[in-house]
Write a protein that binds this DNA or RNA. Structure first.
Length: 595
RNA sequence: UGCCCGAUGGUGUAACGGUAGCACAAGUGACUCUGAAUCACUUUGUCUAGGUUCAAAUCCUAGUCGGGCAGCCA
C-alpha cells in the first residue's frame, strides 16, 4: 500500500518541456493538454521508449490531459502485427495503476469524422479514456487516416504546394543535394491531381513517381528542399490490407495525425529537430481551422552497457545471441519485465534521469538503484543457497526438525512471518566458507563461529575433502542455547549467513543474469557483438527453503544476502524457474577484490 | 562541407542575472541475526577567451569540443 507513496509524494517533475506545458496551461492556450506516444510497429519497445512513455503520460497525468497511443504505421514493408500487439502489452504494463486513466484510445474501426468550421474542410478523431470500455477500444493508427491524409495531399496540390515528380530515386537525391529544382516542379494542379489519382489507382510501379511538397529547393535545411510526402509501394499493410499502393511519408503523416487527434504537444527525440520547420509548414500551408499541434524535442536515452537501436536489438534476436525480444538480458520492456523489474521502478528511473536536450550516457547504476530501491520495499525474503556446500551439525540430534520463525520483509511488518525447518544436515553457500580466509572475512572458517540466520551459532570443527582435495562437507557444532530467543542468543558473532535444511530443500533452476555487454558503450564499437558478455547468463540449481514451492508469478523475492528474484514464465508446477533480477549491493565483493 | 542542436563534479541533472544544489557512483564511520537496508560525514563541477553588469553557470561575441540531419525509414 505504501509502495506508491514515494511516487505520489514526490514533487512533480520539472523540465524544459513541462515548463512549456505549464506556461500553456497558465495562459489557457488549449482547452486540454493532449500528448501522444507514437511508436512504429517495427520492433519491440525498449527502455528508451519507456522514458518517452513516462514523459508523455506523465504530462497528461500532471496537467489533467490525455495521452494517445498511436501506431505510426506508414511503412507497410517494415511493420508487423506482432509488434502492434507487443507494444500495447508493454505500454499497458508500464502505465498500469499509474496513468491507465490517461490512455487515449478510440472505438474499434473508427476513423476521423469530417467536420466543417467556417465552411472549411476538416477532420477530427477524439480520444476515449474509459478504461472500463477497454475491450471495445483500440489504439490509434496513422494508417486509419490514409483517406484524410490523401485528401490533405490533394488540397496541397490544389494550392500549388505539391507536385508529382517523375525523377528516379537517384536523380531525386542528386537534385536535392545540389539544390536543383525538379523539372516536374511546375506542372499544373490539374496535371498533378490527375497523376496523383493515377498513382493511387495503381497505374505506376514502385519508385517511378512521388508526390513532393513544393517549398524551397535552395533551403539550407534539406528537409525543406521539396521533400517527398508520398511514395508508391505496392505492398500489403498489416492494418489496411491491400487498400493502398501509395503511402504517406513520416513527415506528412505525422503532423497531420497529431492534428487529427487534437494533439497539443507533439514530443519526439532530437533527431527530428530539423524536421520541425516541415512539420509546421505542412500544417500552416493547409490553413487548418483548429489550433495546431507543436513539436518539442528531447534527448533519447542512452544507457551504459547496452545497445538501444532497434536494428542492433533485432540482430541479437535474429542471430540467436539472446533467446528472443523478451530475453531478460534485453533492454526491451518485455525483457525487463520478464527479468522481474516492476513498472514502478522503471517509472522512478525515468523520473530520476530527467529530460534535457543533452545527449549523454546514463550510468546503469541509476537503473540498478531504482530497481533495488523498489524491490527492497516489496520483496519477500527467502533463504536459498545458490552454490551449496553441505554442513553437518554433529551435536544436533539426527531426525530432529525445528520450525523456526522467519521475517518475510523487515521493511514491511504487515508482510508477516513464516516457518522454516532446521535439521542436522544443511546447505550453506560455498562462498560463505573459506579454508584460508582473507582479512576481514566475517563468515565461516576452520575453528571460527558464524550465526545461522534465525537459528544457531555454529563453529566449524572439521573439513571433509574428496580425493582431489576439494571440500565436500563441513562438520560443525552448534551452540544449542544460541537459537533466536535462547540463553546465549545475544552473543556477538561477526557474521550471519543463510542456510537451507538439506532434507527439506526444494530445487530450483535459477538463471543468473548479468549485463549483456562488457563495455559501457557497445554501440560505439566497430563490432558491438564482439563485446557481448560471455557470462551474461549462468544457470545453477539452487537449494531453496520449502516455502518457495508456492512462489507466485506476481511476487518478488529476495534470497537473503544474495539477490532479488522473480518467477520466470518457463516455471511450471514441480519445476521452479527463477530469474535473478538484480544482485544485492555487495560491499564485501569490493573489499575481497583488494586481496 | 552545409544546416540545426548542445556543453554544470566520475555519471545524470537543478539553479530562469543574486549563497552552484540534488540523485547515482566513490570514500569514511555508526548500526546490523542480510557485508543488504538505514543513518552520519567526506571527496569531486560551471568547455575556452573576450564583452555587458554592482553582480554571469545564466545575457552577447568568437572559438573549442560533442551530437544530429543530408532514405522513396521513422
Amino acid at each position: 500500500m505504501s509502495l506508491d507513496n514515494k511516487e505520489s509524494a514526490a514533487p512533480a517533475p520539472s523540465d524544459f518541456i513541462r515548463d512549456i506545458v505549464a506556461a500553456h496551461v497558465a495562459e489557457n492556450k488549449y482547452p486540454r493538454i493532449h500528448t501522444r506516444f507514437p511508436p512504429e510497429p517495427n520492433g519491440y519497445l525498449h527502455i528508451g521508449h519507456a522514458k518517452s512513455i513516462c514523459l508523455n503520460f506523465g504530462i497528461a497525468r500532471e496537467f489533467g490531459g490525455i495521452c494517445n497511443l498511436r501506431m505510426d504505421d506508414t511503412n507497410p514493408t517494415k511493420e508487423d502485427i506482432e509488434y502492434v500487439e507487443s507494444i500495447q502489452a508493454d505500454v499497458n504494463w508500464l502505465i498500469s495503476a499509474w496513468a491507465d486513466d490517461k490512455l487515449g484510445l478510440k472505438p474499434k474501426g473508427q476513423t476521423p469524422k469530417a467536420i466543417s468550421e467556417d465552411g472549411k474542410r476538416d477532420f477530427y478523431l477524439p480520444a476515449v479514456t474509459d478504461a472500463s470500455a477497454r475491450s471495445g477500444l483500440e489504439p490509434f493508427y496513422a494508417s486509419d487516416y490514409f483517406d484524410q491524409i490523401y485528401d490533405y495531399a490533394e488540397q496541397l496540390i490544389e494550392k500549388g504546394k505539391a507536385f508529382v515528380c517523375d525523377l528516379t530515386p537517384e536523380q531525386t537525391d542528386e537534385y536535392r543535394r545540389n539544390a536543383l529544382e525538379s523539372p516536374f516542379r511546375n506542372r499544373t494542379p490539374e496535371e498533378n491531381l490527375d497523376l496523383f489519382q493515377r498513382m493511387k489507382a495503381g497505374e505506376f510501379p514502385d519508385g517511378t513517381r512521388t508526390l513532393r511538397a513544393r517549398i524551397d529547393v535552395a533551403s539550407p535545411n534539406i528537409w525543406m528542399r521539396d521533400p517527398l510526402i508520398y511514395r508508391i509501394r505496392h505492398a500489403e499493410h498489416h492494418h489496411t490490407g491491400n487498400k493502398w499502393c501509395i503511402y504517406p511519408m513520416y513527415d506528412f503523416a505525422h503532423c497531420l495525425s497529431d492534428y487529427l487527434e487534437g494533439i497539443t504537444h507533439s514530443i519526439c527525440t532530437l533527431e527530428f529537430e530539423v524536421h520541425r520547420p516541415l512539420y509546421d509548414w505542412i500544417l500552416e500551408s493547409l490553413e487548418l481551422p483548429r489550433p495546431l499541434p507543436r513539436q518539442y524535442e528531447f534527448a533519447r536515452l542512452a544507457l551504459g552497457y547496452t545497445v538501444m537501436s532497434k536494428r542492433k536489438l533485432m540482430q541479437l534476436v535474429n542471430e540467436n545471441l539472446v533467446t528472443g525480444w523478451d530475453d531478460p538480458r534485453m533492454p526491451t520492456i518485455s525483457g525487463i519485465r520478464r527479468r522481474g523489474v516492476t513498472p514502478q521502478s522503471l517509472r522512478n528511473f525515468a523520473y530520476n534521469i530527467g529530460i534535457t536536450k543533452y545527449n549523454g550516457l546514463t550510468d546503469v547504476a541509476v537503473l540498478e538503484y531504482a530497481i533495488r530501491d523498489d524491490l527492497n520495499k516489496r520483496a519477500q525474503r527467502r533463504l536459498a543457497v545458490l552454490r551449496p556446500i553441505k554442513v553437518t551439525i554433529s551435536n544436533y540430534p539426527e531426525g530432529k526438525v525445528e520450525e523456526l520463525d522467519a521475517v518475510n520483509n523487515p521493511e514491511d511488518e504487515s508482510a508477516g512471518k513464516r516457518k522454516i525447518p532446521f535439521s542436522r544436515e544443511l546447505f550453506i553457500e560455498r562462498d560463505d566458507f573459506a579454508e584460508v580466509p582473507p582479512p576481514k572475512f566475517f563468515r565461516l572458517k576452520p575453528g571460527g563461529e558464524v550465526r545461522l540466520k534465525y537459528a544457531y551459532i555454529i563453529k566449524c570443527e572439521e573439513t571433509v575433502k574428496d580425493a582431489d582435495g576439494h571440500i565436500t562437507e563441513l562438520r560443525c557444532t552448534a551452540d544449542l542455547d544460541s537459537k533466536t530467543g535462547g540463553a546465549t542468543a545475544a552473543r556477538k558473532v561477526k557474521g550471519t549467513i543463510h542456510w537451507v535444511s538439506a532434507a527439506h530443500a526444494v530445487d530450483a533452476e535459477v538463471r543468473l543474469y548479468d549485463r549483456l555487454f562488457t563495455v559501457p558503450d557497445p554501440g560505439a564499437e566497430e563490432d558491438f557483438k564482439s563485446t557481448l558478455n560471455p557470462h551474461s547468463l549462468e544457470i545453477v540449481t539452487a537449494k531453496c527453503e520449502p516455502s518457495l514451492k508456492d512462489a507466485k508469478p506476481e511476487e518478488r523475492y529476495q534470497f537473503e544476502r544474495m539477490a532479488y528474484f522473480a518467477l520466470d514464465l518457463d516455471s511450471r508446477p514441480g519445476k521452479l524457474v527463477l530469474n535473478r533480477t538484480i544482485t544485492l549491493k555487495d560491499t564485501w565483493a569490493k573489499e575481497a577484490q583488494k586481496w
